[in-house]
Design a protein around this nucleic acid. Structure first.
Lengths: 168, 168
DNA sequence: TGGGAATGTCAATGTGGCTGACATATGACG
DNA sequence: CGTCATATGTCAGCCACATTGACATTCCCA
């Protein structure tokens, strides 16, 4: 896109004061609070926490994903995820199916109950996101995504840009 | 700014698919992880956590702020903040001064040690923010801030837009 | 003088991270 | 076949950080 001056790799070296950057930092802080507040209320009513939401979200995004893949995208230890998954499976929100090709693997799927909770959570979050996008306008949405992607670590960008893959 | 169609209050009712909104949601998730990762490493080396960072940040932003004001901006209970503040004061990163006008209030200030840690933390965070802003470009920065502000709750917007005030 | 505000603190509890250790089932390879 | 590695599950203990509830102190103010 825009390569006005003489910079090589898209780094346009803006004049960014510490004060402007501080505003950006605080924007992330406050916005993330708003971003999580709606699901948090729903989760509390159901007796779950943010960890359950994250697991449910990524299982919904990639049905049939394995435990290891989920561990990587969530960035937690298996012991931490296990506690969450055990509850979700016990409450019949998640189903764990033995892999057909590799029987060591467990492929995770949401049940009807799991899909219902996921729908409730993601609808609340999408409603806020839709409102924010609509208020800010289409150009702002593009900028929003560009900045956020540039803020990620490289390995996380990969997860972000990956869509779905297997099942079974 | 741009009020193209015939919408009244800046809500331009974009065509936003669930998939686009999901990308926005995941962008927030992954970007926030990157956003916090640099300070987290520094904090761990010093034996502190994210809670200490938040306290130090907002004391640095508004020197002389009171405990109550800090409680409100952080959105935690006084018992939770107390544990953090006690450690920061014991380790001489924060100084608590009795108010001159209202002696019930404690006005919080960073010491030299506190300022040093805050500088280390905020510099790491600003570096990432500066890189993201530079990669994305000035227009994207504007959009980023617009969307994030629109994602906040109303009361949090007030804290976001407030600068500093008193001291003493 | 009495109520309420600002602060500090103790205790108990819950969530969600972590490390370390160990067990089981299965795949892969020589 | 035997061996090693992989994928998963689980137990135990620890830590950070949040909560509620209760209570004490100091101080402002009507």
């Amino acid at each position: 896109m825009a390569e006005s001056k003489g910079t090589q790799s898209g780094e346009s070296l803006l004049f960014l004061t510490d004060e402007q950057l501080r505003k950006g930092i605080e924007a992330m802080f406050f916005a993330y609070r708003g971003f999580t507040s709606d699901p948090d209320k729903i989760l509390e009513a159901h007796g779950y926490g943010r960890a359950h939401h994250r697991a449910v979200h990524f299982i919904a995004r990639a049905p049939g994903t394995t435990v290891n893949a989920l561990l990587e995208v969530l960035g937690v230890t298996k012991q931490s995820l296990n506690r969450v998954l055990r509850a979700l499976i016990a409450h019949e929100l998640v189903e764990s199916r033995v892999g057909k090709q590799d029987k060591r693997e467990r492929h995770l799927h949401l049940t009807q109950k799991g899909l219902a909770l996921e729908a409730e959570l993601s609808q609340a979050q999408r409603t806020r996101m839709r409102r924010a996008f609509s208020q800010a306008g289409p150009d702002a949405v593009v900028g929003f995504k560009q900045v956020l992607e540039a803020m990620m670590d490289e390995d996380q960008k990969a997860y972000f840009n990956a869509l779905k893959e297997s099942d079974q």
